[in-house]
């Protein structure tokens, strides 16, 4: 391109061309001033504000998209945390119900056990009491019967018996009694 241009520059008779196409510096000046003025006015009153507004709008759209993205992410995070919380709450509730059930069962068992122990103790005490009282009654009865036998024998044998005999008889009587 460069070479062909240079060759062209050397070969062309420019003054003839200028005449042929009616080149006039007055006209050149008018046209260039006209263009510069129009371009400046277009930029100053048209494209500057348009370009600014386009940039502004792009920024706004970018911000809006970013905001929407953030919102989406936030919503997703919120959703997941809510689900988590619901799950944990459900689990907690289950735990509470289970522990309550367990507690109730334990209390029931304990009560039963205590009741059994109590009743067993009462029975035991009662048996002991019965045995003690029987023993005591038996003892009393033995003593009374012995004394009664001795009294009777004494009154029967009052005069013929020595003290040694009396004691022997008493012992015998005691042995014979059940």
């Amino acid at each position: 391109m460069a070479i062909s241009n240079v060759l062209m520059f050397g070969m062309v008779d420019f003054s003839g061309l200028l005449d042929k196409f009616g080149i006039d510096w007055h006209l050149l000046l008018i046209q260039s001033l006209n263009f510069v003025l129009v371009a400046f006015l277009l930029y100053r009153f048209g494209f500057r504000s348009v370009a600014r507004v386009m940039d502004e709008r792009r920024e706004k759209i970018e911000l809006g998209l970013k905001y929407a993205d953030d919102m989406k992410r936030e919503k997703a995070a919120f959703e997941s945390s809510r689900a988590q919380r619901a799950e944990s709450a459900r689990r907690e509730a289950e735990g509470i119900v289970k522990s309550a059930k367990d507690g109730a069962k334990a209390i029931l068992e304990q009560g039963k056990m205590e009741l059994q122990q109590q009743s067993a103790g009462m029975i035991l005490n009662a048996e002991k009491e019965i045995a003690r009282r029987r023993k005591k009654i038996l003892g009393d009865a033995k003593a009374e019967i012995g004394t009664l036998v001795v009294e009777v024998a004494k009154s029967v044998l009052a005069s013929q018996m020595t003290d040694r005999d009396r004691n022997n008889y008493a012992a015998m009587a005691e042995k014979m009694l059940p």
């Binding site: 062909s4 062309v12 061309l17």
Partner: peptide
């Protein structure tokens, strides 16, 4: 555009 320019050189500068 660059190729086309040749045509204009030939048309206008050949006189």
């Amino acid at each position: 555009a660059l190729a086309e320019a040749i045509a204009f050189y030939a048309l206008f500068f050949s006189k």
